[in-house]
Amino acid sequence: MAITKDTVKYAANLARIELSEKELEHFTGQLDRVLEYVHKLEGLNVEKLAPTSHVMDIKNVYRDDIVKESLPASEAIKNAPAKEGDLFKVQKIIEA
């Protein structure tokens, strides 16, 4: 097994996705097959290789820090499922 139900459960929790027992079972089997396939990468010696996270030859892109017009808060918040004034409204964060 490349991955177990417990590991899938752990990753799903990190990703903040609630899974039903049925989904957990189903996804574990499918992801196990995908990871078995990915294990073919172990056949390569990668020790001396530099990683490529990005193909372009650019590193940091700087610009002058100039204040420009931005979206008004009322526009930026227009799609919020819940709001109060110009603020996003969410459930209580700190439990009593």
Binding site: A11, I17, F27
Partner: peptide, 24 residues
Amino acid sequence: AIIDMYKKTRAQGFGDEAKRRIIL
């Protein structure tokens, strides 16, 4: 609570393939 809201929203909002890829 908020963590519960994240988890339920993402459980209801994403389809199977999106869930699989995010978890992977």
